[in-house]
Amino acid sequence: MIDLTPRKLHLLDSYEDGRDARHFSFRIDFPQAHDLATMPGQFFMLAVPGVGEAPFTYVSPPNLYGHFNALIRRMGNLTDALFALRPGDTLGYRGPFGKGWPLFFSPRRVLVVAGGCGLAPLAGLIDEASREHLSSRLSVVYGARRDEDQILARERLRWKLAIPFIETLDDAAAGQRRGTPLDHFDEVFATVQPDTLLCCGPESLMLGAARASVEHGIQPSRIWVSLERRMHCGVGLCGHCYIGASYACLDGPTYRYDRFLALTGATDSCAAPALQRC
């Protein structure tokens, strides 16, 4: 039987990390063995007592002591309440839930494309690649509207020393790359020749990146996207996160692109309306 009751979670600390975004450190009370099996790209349900529960992704998964990090943007009532809390306050935790990113670097050449807060679900994977000395197999293109919209500032400093990491801004200053990640695809594909795409960001960005990658020769079955959906239970019961006959909390949020297209009844050439409608 599933357990719908949260476990106790301690707020350890937080700091500003992007516009309206904070980087939180949490500790699970009495961590369990399955906490260590958390995969990058999975999510957890955070309970803010008196407000409710909402899904968030991990920047770093729980360690032996139950410590983990999450990047959270202030977006509604629950995050308003969360941002008002102080270190030591008690929250609730359920997870990990959903499917994470595939971890299959060698011998693949992986392109990671992220937009805005979409970098957060990919952070654990980028860290994993850096630690395992697979940096030559992984490249990142990270886009944001303005520099203040960029997140994970400390992590990006570290990653830029280890792996090819392109940053691009819609509103770029002199000396900065301008445009969306797609504007740099020709350059990226010419230099690193990726055969796999992992993408997270606004759906329009993911759609565009997936289609452009297909045009550059990546098979739809080598493309993964991470879909955001409203989730209340995290265990496939409340019904809110449906995508076709699938529930994002169980079968996602990470979907293989060809399976996602099949779910929404679209082909990659006409996925735009499907993405808008799904």
Partner: peptide
């Protein structure tokens, strides 16, 4: 389908309920 309903009592105790929901509601997703 169901939705959460969280309420705080006079004593400060929080009660988290679930209530029937409908996929026909505009705000369902």
């Amino acid at each position: 389908c169901f939705a959460p309903l969280e309420q705080v009592g006079a004593s400060g105790e929080v009660q988290h309920e679930r209530v029937w929901d409908s996929c026909l509601y505009e705000g369902f997703q």
